[in-house]
Every structure is written in structure tokens, then in C-alpha cells.
């Protein structure tokens, strides 16, 4: 299993066991498979995604990425895990405006010491970014920016790709195109995809779906 979540509970300050943002969530995700996480606003989708990405701490239960339990990891071990094995794609793209498109794409992979020029070139070609590489992220359109973010995430060849409303800022046509491309690339590279969305159409494109309601799986 690439991602294994067991009975995880997460409470923000001021929340009781009953009102906790996540209450006893469990799920598995194997290599090459994809899971769509849906739910109302405030149902805990993003929080669960952040836990899966070793970005935040949980109160009980366990999250394992590729067999490594996160609860026992130090801050720098978690950082190392994020550098090598986990990638993220966000609705806001969160590109680094001071770096060129090319450098943005390579940044994560190089941080994790996993940059392969041939794979990067292929990704750029597949995502239609070859002409943009010397540009800066603020110049291309929203769809292009999100494709840069996807290229950055996949250049790492991560075991787990986490995406939070990756097409939330795009119109429907662009959205579908980007999703198609992402799923194709995920399948090719054997990456597990864990995606948060509120769009039923997008959820339908993935292998499995999990619906969250008030912090528990529905």
C-alpha cells in the first residue's frame, strides 16, 4: 500500500472528541490507483489530505506512507519524506513567482534529488509547456499555471500525489483537459493519486470515491 490511514482522529484547539474535524477515518490506496475525496465545506477533506501528505499532525491512529508510520517521524524526517515521495497540487497552484517555469517544474524533484532531465522534458512536452520554460509563472494563463504545478509534482516521480481541488480555478473545458492529462500521467508512472474535489464529474473520473461528512466517512 502506498497510503494506509488507520482510525485517524484530528482535533483543532477548542474541539471536543465529538466535534473533532476527523473522527476515526481509515482508508488504503495502492500504487497506480486513484481516490476522490468529496464532501461539504468543513467536512475535513483538506485536513485529511494534509495528514496524508505529512504536512500536519494527528491526535490518534496512524498514517503510513509506503510502509512508514508518520507518527514516529521527526520534523526533518517528515520533510525528507515530502521531498522524495509525496507531491502536491493545489487549487492556487502555489508556484514560486521568482523562479522561471522551468525552474519551478524542476524545483521539487531537485530538492528531493530525483530530477531526471529526460522525464522532465517528457512531462513538459506532454503538458504542452515546452515553449514556456523561460517564462515566469505569473505570465501564463491559469490552465497553463496549473499544468506547471502538475509537472512540478510529477517530476518527482512521487509514490503519492495529493491534489486539492486542482481544477477549482479553471473553467470546465480546461478542467476536464487537465484532469485527463493528470490521470494519464499518474497511470503511466504508477503513482497513487489522492484527490479532493467537490465536483461529482471529476470524482467520477477516478477509480474510487470516499465521501466525508462531519469528519467521518459516509
Amino acid at each position: 500500500m502506498v497510503l494506509k490511514i488507520r482510525d485517524v482522529t484530528k482535533r483543532y484547539p477548542g474541539q471536543t472528541a465529538e466535534t473533532a474535524v476527523l473522527r476515526g477515518i481509515s482508508l488504503d490506496l495502492s500504487a497506480g490507483s486513484s481516490l476522490a475525496l468529496t464532501g461539504e465545506s468543513g467536512s475535513g477533506k483538506s485536513t485529511l489530505l494534509h495528514l496524508a501528505g505529512a504536512l500536519d499532525h494527528f491526535d490518534s491512529g496512524e498514517v503510513e506512507i509506503d510502509g512508514t508510520g508518520l507518527s514516529s517521524l521527526s520534523d526533518s524526517q517528515r520533510a525528507a519524506l515530502r521531498r522524495r515521495d509525496v507531491s502536491l497540487v493545489f487549487q492556487q497552484f502555489n508556484l514560486i513567482p521568482s523562479l522561471s517555469v522551468d525552474k519551478n517544474i524542476a524545483l521539487h524533484a531537485r530538492l528531493g534529488g530525483k530530477w531526471e532531465t529526460s522525464w522532465g522534458t517528457r512531462l513538459k512536452a506532454r503538458l504542452g509547456l515546452s515553449d514556456l520554460q523561460d517564462h515566469y509563472p505569473e505570465q501564463p494563463s491559469g490552465g497553463q499555471q496549473q499544468r506547471v504545478a502538475i509537472a512540478r509534482a510529477l517530476a518527482v516521480r512521487p509514490k503519492l500525489l495529493l491534489a486539492d481541488e486542482p481544477t477549482g480555478n479553471l473553467d470546465e473545458t480546461a478542467s476536464a483537459a487537465v484532469m485527463e492529462l493528470m490521470l494519464e500521467l499518474v497511470r503511466e508512472s504508477g503513482t497513487a493519486l489522492f484527490l479532493v474535489t467537490h465536483s461529482a464529474a471529476i470524482a467520477q473520473m477516478l477509480d474510487r470515491r470516499l465521501h466525508l461528512r462531519h469528519g467521518t466517512a459516509a
Binding site: D75, S76, A79, L88, N94, S98
Partner: peptide, 16 residues
């Protein structure tokens, strides 16, 4: 923060 957070998410530790 918006500049730093993505780099952190990509595996740069807070100390770094």
C-alpha cells in the same frame, strides 16, 4: 508565507 509554504510542502524543513 505564500512564498515559503510551497517550498515547505515540497520538503524543506522549517529550520532550513
Amino acid at each position: 508565507l505564500p512564498q515559503i509554504a510551497p517550498v515547505w510542502a515540497m520538503g524543506a524543513s522549517r529550520r532550513q
